[in-house]
Design a protein around this nucleic acid. Structure first.
Length: 119
DNA sequence: TTGCTGACTTGGC
DNA sequence: AGCCAAGCCAGCA
């Protein structure tokens, strides 16, 4: 395959992320067969065409340490708001508990109310 | 082809 | 806990 179609693959994958769950850039990259291309995934989303921006749940894609680095930008603010609205707990610092909210393609359902493990 | 850029990741301080 | 430096990869001039 001469043309991997990296970006289209990214968009298709992101669109499958269920509400109330999140995925990391590295995770998306690995899922489409390009492990290590986390950075490229970020670039792809940054260059998302207008017609896709409204149907693409870009806010469900976060960095491994939490919400995108641009936490001072409007983007991050909106992202936190959208995620929180879907039931994802976003801390004030912007980081998310991936152990609870990270989307695992292998496990169907499990969305909406992730089990809170009490110690 | 080379070189630079970026919504990243990991490891070390 | 947060900040810095190096390593990765795809897209574009």
């Amino acid at each position: 395959m001469t043309k991997s179609g990296f970006r289209p693959a990214v968009y298709a994958r992101v669109r499958k992320i269920p509400s109330g769950r999140v995925a990391t850039y590295g995770q998306i990259a690995a899922e489409i067969g390009h492990p290590g291309a986390a950075r490229a995934v970020g670039t792809a989303l940054a260059q998302t065409p207008r017609h896709l921006q409204r149907i693409l749940p870009w806010h469900r894609v976060i960095a491994s340490h939490g919400v995108s680095r641009a936490r001072d930008g409007e983007r991050a603010a909106l992202q936190r708001e959208l995620l929180r609205d879907e039931g994802v707990a976003v801390r004030a610092s912007g980081h998310v508990d991936l152990l609870r909210f990270q989307w695992n393609p292998s496990e169907r359902q499990r969305d909406g109310a992730p089990k809170v493990r009490h110690k």
